[in-house]
Design a protein around this nucleic acid. Structure first.
Lengths: 193, 193
DNA sequence: ATTCATACTTGACAGTGTCTAGTAGAAAAA
DNA sequence: TTTTTCTACTAGACACTGTCAAGTATGAAT
């Protein structure tokens, strides 16, 4: 096991921060609290992350890397599988996902290595959409369909994690079945203007 | 014009908070800052809202009321129009929308009057989906299609407002055209299992 | 005239991010 | 071997935050 003590403070702080984000949201992440959890002084984390935004950037980079790998692995199975992969990533890495989508906490433009991973994930999604659409579709249509697929996956993920979807729907026997169903609807839509 | 001075402090604080949320995000809303902007002591807002969460609840209630009215007005035009209405609401009321979807800032369960408006909006959406599906669809299918329509609208709205969609897509001539296109794709999907 | 509620103000406290200034120890250079 | 430099921290301070407690001015109701 990769215990905290042996992995160094950086890893230790990151794990604590992700855990807090998963249970209480990213805003509950405090420099002093993660330091306390790691058993070090309140200034120790600054050495590894610069400031609070640095922690969010590190979490984002890690999250986008996992997401990119997950999407890339799914693309041979079609857009429905890709959509499912997106949602399952969000559910399985709630702490990461919540931080990744919060541009106000940390603008990724200032963190090139995180941006690279985010681009990897996006490009995997866009390429898969392009393959499905075929070569004869124009750029506007490709853009719209990319936005569409991303919207379905992203919307379902956020509504399941932080939104009131399940509460409002009332009776949902199997979440995975719901995800599969929605992903199937999304992938079955190809409209030619 | 409904100026600040004449409308009372409550309205004044609310407007300041919404404006801050629209420009810098809900986390930038501070009790002391809104008090400062209204020209009162740092404790004055507490009289009207109880605490910080109370401000978020008030913004949410107002936002859900506007959203509900907007969706209700659109439903006679079909699901595509409803989807567009959702996204346009988010773009036109960025400050409200950002606060409404942040359950960590203020759990709506503690604010019944806000919950009522949220339910209004959800029910309008669900009813419209039910009408489109027809009476012969079972509950699971109705749930899935509701989740699907909501996901598309919500995903597109959040990606446009806070996400990197436009930046990643690169060339989007007309945002409204993109929204219409995505909404059209969403509404053209009816899959029978 | 007295009570009471409304709409505030002032003051204090603990908690926060972060700047500045240290310090113990190991590695590198002289 | 001695000295310097670098890494990974610690300690203290500052301004800022949300919020509790207590006070005050004004108007209405009794």
């Amino acid at each position: 096991m990769s215990s905290a003590k042996t992995d160094g403070l950086r890893r230790q702080v990151l794990d604590a921060a992700v855990a807090i984000a998963a249970t209480s949201g990213p805003d509950a992440i405090s420099m002093r609290e993660v330091a306390r959890l790691a058993g070090v002084s309140h200034q120790a984390p600054y050495h590894h992350f610069g400031d609070r935004a640095g922690i969010f950037a590190a979490i984002s980079e890690e999250g986008f890397r996992i997401l990119a790998e997950s999407i890339e692995a799914s693309t041979t199975l079609g857009t429905a599988a890709m959509c499912e992969a997106y949602v399952h990533f969000a559910l399985a890495h709630k702490g990461h996902f919540r931080v990744m989508m919060r541009n106000d906490l940390c603008s990724l433009e200032n963190y090139p290595s995180a941006l690279i991973q985010a681009d990897r994930a996006f490009n995997a999604l866009r390429n898969e959409v392009a393959v499905i659409l075929g070569e004869d579709s124009n750029e506007d249509e490709a853009n719209a369909h990319t936005a569409y697929m991303w919207s379905v996956a992203h919307g379902l993920a956020t509504l399941l994690i932080d939104g009131p979807l399940l509460k409002k729907l009332g009776s949902v026997a199997d979440i995975n079945e719901l995800i599969r169903n929605v992903a199937h609807k999304a992938s079955s839509t190809i409209v030619h203007s």
